[in-house]
Design a protein around this nucleic acid. Sequence first.
DNA 1: AATGAATGAGACTTCATTCAT
DNA 2: TATGAATGAAGTCTCATTCAT
Lengths: 203, 203, 203, 203
Amino acid sequence: MTDERVAERRTQILSAALDVFAEKGYHSTKISDIAEKLNMGHGTFYRYFKNKLDIFSSVIDEIIIGIKEALGDEDPERSNTIEEYQEQIQRIGDRLFDFFMKDNRLGQVIFYENLRIDPELHKKTNNAIEQINEFTKQYLINGVKKKFLNQHIDTTILAKAINSMIFASIKDFLESEKSEEICQRWTDTIALLQMKGIAASSK
Amino acid sequence: MTDERVAERRTQILSAALDVFAEKGYHSTKISDIAEKLNMGHGTFYRYFKNKLDIFSSVIDEIIIGIKEALGDEDPERSNTIEEYQEQIQRIGDRLFDFFMKDNRLGQVIFYENLRIDPELHKKTNNAIEQINEFTKQYLINGVKKKFLNQHIDTTILAKAINSMIFASIKDFLESEKSEEICQRWTDTIALLQMKGIAASSK
Amino acid sequence: MTDERVAERRTQILSAALDVFAEKGYHSTKISDIAEKLNMGHGTFYRYFKNKLDIFSSVIDEIIIGIKEALGDEDPERSNTIEEYQEQIQRIGDRLFDFFMKDNRLGQVIFYENLRIDPELHKKTNNAIEQINEFTKQYLINGVKKKFLNQHIDTTILAKAINSMIFASIKDFLESEKSEEICQRWTDTIALLQMKGIAASSK
Amino acid sequence: MTDERVAERRTQILSAALDVFAEKGYHSTKISDIAEKLNMGHGTFYRYFKNKLDIFSSVIDEIIIGIKEALGDEDPERSNTIEEYQEQIQRIGDRLFDFFMKDNRLGQVIFYENLRIDPELHKKTNNAIEQINEFTKQYLINGVKKKFLNQHIDTTILAKAINSMIFASIKDFLESEKSEEICQRWTDTIALLQMKGIAASSK
DNA sequence: AATGAATGAGACTTCATTCAT
DNA sequence: TATGAATGAAGTCTCATTCAT
């Protein structure tokens, strides 16, 4: 079998697995569920993946790669004013949003299923999240340096705080009727919080 | 056996179960692990709980009750100024913090283990989170009504956003070295975001 | 369960396993075959043995212990004349014979099944056989020392040669109709070979 | 494909199979192991052999044929004196030795692997061994008839006894460092036993 | 003729749950 | 009431064999 055909088959299986993991979770997913979805003998699965953990790990890998691509080519140092920062931060949020929106299953798996299954995997996922936090932190540091952000912010914590809201927005979106409107309301709310806070004087 | 004795035994088992679920997760927890922890025959377990799901469900119930108690007796309508709001919001954060801090296992179970095991359970947990969101929303509505909060905030989304940060802070805390300092930095950051945002002018 | 009851159950399973291993060989033996023989759920098996290799190893252990007991309390230095030597050597042969005769299955398993399954096991069995050879060698050395055996014999090889005949006799016996007569004929033949050889002059 | 080409291919496969069976034993040998050894697709295997048992059976057949060839053209009636007998018996031993020595794998398979796999096979191998015993027996009968062997020997049992020593010598040789010396020591010991026995008077 | 992808029977092992003591 | 021995359903994984290319 050509490498290409193998890769294609792996991709098919990976996608079917993503389906089932997203629907049932890791432990309730049987290898035969995945195989059935492809009208494939379950023995065939083992030609392409070592075992159940192997494919789950691969699924997570794919998602992490996707997330990184989604964030990829932004330069944290590019923005010079609070307006530019806001634009940029929103662009990043939008991209993450788009990434998870284009495939419902991704969020299901990464937010609910990735922990407690294998320590190695746990580490890997935590690592990815830390990278995202680090990425966000660079934006904040840039803003502080260029003086358009408050000099007293705790960039480490704030990065986590902002990302937690972004992730919450994604989850919320996935669990809602997935309207464009929800998306906009979250974007606005996160922006408002950052720009002015929510006190009345912050008109 | 008196009802009282039964209740006492159930409580013991529940606590042991919380231990093991927190350490190993639902699927890797064996009934015999729980029984062993109490030097109890694992057949005995079934005199107090219907089955494995039953006890897990009960564990989640206990946690949810605890959370509600933690939030319980605050009156969302009490604060009249932004300062009072800030105090109140911080008090709530502190309580949630305290609740999860006093017992590490709670966060482990509720954040990592409660979903994907049983749809009924999923619904119950989601419900609890929605109630917390609703609770927070009432504070925001009160603030808008009394004019000390920005009239244009999206109270539904903002409630979720704020809670997502609080939960993130708890997770972060649980995974960190659990220093008092981390706790304070999160509190300050969340307060700052709400009070002034993070733009430079927001000094 | 008392240790005694556990030991008893283990013995039962061990005996059933010996049956099946002797009949089908290691690889063709299913755990469920062993369980079935005892009208026992196959899950029960795993309460008493770690896995298939564990029980097979235990079976071999038992046999080796039995062999050693069969040889046990003879003193290689006791005989002082060729007649005593002959008596002694025959006694040993008889005992090994008796051991394997009393339970058909023992020879089946130890002669046909113990190799190639696990390196550790192979080593163990080889060891046991080497010990028997060593044991026999001591008799020969004693005979040489006391001058009732030919001074030029190769005690190491001869010990192996004699034992190979004893084992062959056992196999032959097991595969035959198991008559007392066969037994006697082997004994006589081995004795004759040792005492005088088979040349005509050796009347 | 010409019959010749087919036969050649079968021979190749047979040799590769002998390799793997000798190294891993029947049950641990995968058809794909054999195919791999020949850089051949494992599906191709089935064009030349019906199934796994078929090839193992063929391997055994080949070995048995080889053994018979090794023994083949001696005439049991040829020797007339004890010296000729000794020479002849030694020649047979040497040939068997040579046969197994020229290819390590043969002994591995025939001594350790041929039983318990298939009753048909078991019978076949037993048959071959019986023939060797019968063959040896003819030598003994000849010796008795011509009076250079003891008139009272039990030719049936003695044939088995002698062969058991020869087989033991081969096994020992295969498991040792395969020195010429071991070979000689076994030959001498077996000869000594037959010629004079090992009693001191038998100098 | 050769290939190797696909198949699924079959064996191991775990553990929630039952039930006799 | 408590126990833990027994059970067997269920899921993972392997590999001989088939068959479309």
